[in-house]
């Protein structure tokens, strides 16, 4: 009957977004790939030539490259550890009957809505500043020497800031998953003599498994690209101590004007992100079949 018409109509309706995303994905990516094999510097734009794998080699032999990869992993791993463990703990706490639950929830999720530059500046000046930050005030109160966080522990400081931003996200998702746990299951386990610890290990944690996977994968996507927090606080330093891959590429491209080198780095970033994406897609895809 109308099925053929419906199908044509459906295709037409889908066309704009599909075409836009196709162009958006393919054109810049193809250009990046092309540039990555060129000698191309914005300071000398007339002189472009084929570079073979030189840009990759250059990137690969740059000591900053490995440091930035390592820093990227530290940021991703550190933030994940803090947010997942902390998120589970806070979610368990908020799942209890408490007075003023609504307000508590709002307070806890608020950092997620703070734009990255603001979050970074608040922590840099208000909290972690060695002279006037709250942490310094606390240290002085106990008669200790204040820590110069961004000079002494630049990477750790960034991990803390980013973790603060993402902790609400993890908490909120884990809490949502926790609340979908069947109350009768919990009561059955209680009747079966399981204490809180056993209930957590055998009932709650398996129930949360999928939510935890989702939290890890989605956060990883965003954490691989942490940028504004570094720009505002340490600007990648001291040296390359807090430069991640994203920041290194930015430095190469827009501070070093090295289009070829930055593009090679970009391709490496794509490969890294794709490894993560592969697992995320499988997790989300499984959910689609349900």
């Amino acid at each position: 009957m109308a099925t053929q018409n419906t199908k044509t109509l459906a295709r037409l309706m889908m066309a704009p977004s599909v075409l836009l995303l196709l162009v958006w994905m393919i054109v810049p990516l193809a250009m990046t790939l092309w540039f990555s094999f060129q000698n191309y510097n914005l300071l000398n734009p007339g002189n472009v030539s084929f570079a073979g794998f030189f840009n990759y080699q250059y990137f690969y032999t740059d000591p900053a490259f490995f440091q930035s990869i390592w820093n990227t992993l530290v940021i991703v791993g550190g933030v994940l550890l803090i947010t997942v463990v902390g998120g589970i703990a806070i979610a368990l706490l908020l799942d209890q009957p408490i007075f003023g639950q609504g307000v508590v929830r709002i307070l806890v999720i608020s950092p997620f809505f703070v734009m990255p530059p603001v979050a970074a500046l608040i922590w840099k000046n208000m909290i972690m500043h060695p002279g006037y930050g709250v942490l310094a005030d606390i240290a002085k109160f106990f008669g200790l020497r204040p820590v110069d966080w961004f000079a002494q522990y630049p990477l750790f400081s960034i991990v803390i800031i980013v973790a603060w931003q993402w902790l609400p996200f993890a908490t909120l998702i884990l809490l949502t998953a926790l609340q979908s746990l069947d109350g009768e299951q919990k009561e059955a386990a209680e009747m079966d003599g399981a204490n809180f610890f056993n209930r957590f290990i055998y009932l709650v944690l398996p129930h949360l498994a999928r939510a935890i996977t989702v939290v890890i994968l989605i956060q990883t996507i965003f954490l691989l690209g942490v940028y504004a927090e570094i720009l505002v606080t340490t600007n990648g330093g001291p040296g390359y101590a807090s430069t991640n891959l994203a920041f290194l590429i930015y430095r190469t491209a827009l501070l070093g004007y090295d289009v070829g080198g930055a593009s090679a780095g970009g391709i490496i970033a794509v490969v890294l992100a794709n490894i993560v994406a592969f697992f995320l897609m499988r997790a989300v895809g499984k959910n689609l079949d349900r």
Partner: peptide
């Protein structure tokens, strides 16, 4: 799924172009 995958593309990778 493909649409979702475009979201996974790191921004820095296409910064230059």
């Amino acid at each position: 799924m493909w649409m979702l995958s475009t979201k996974m593309m790191p921004a820095v990778a296409v910064l230059v172009p």
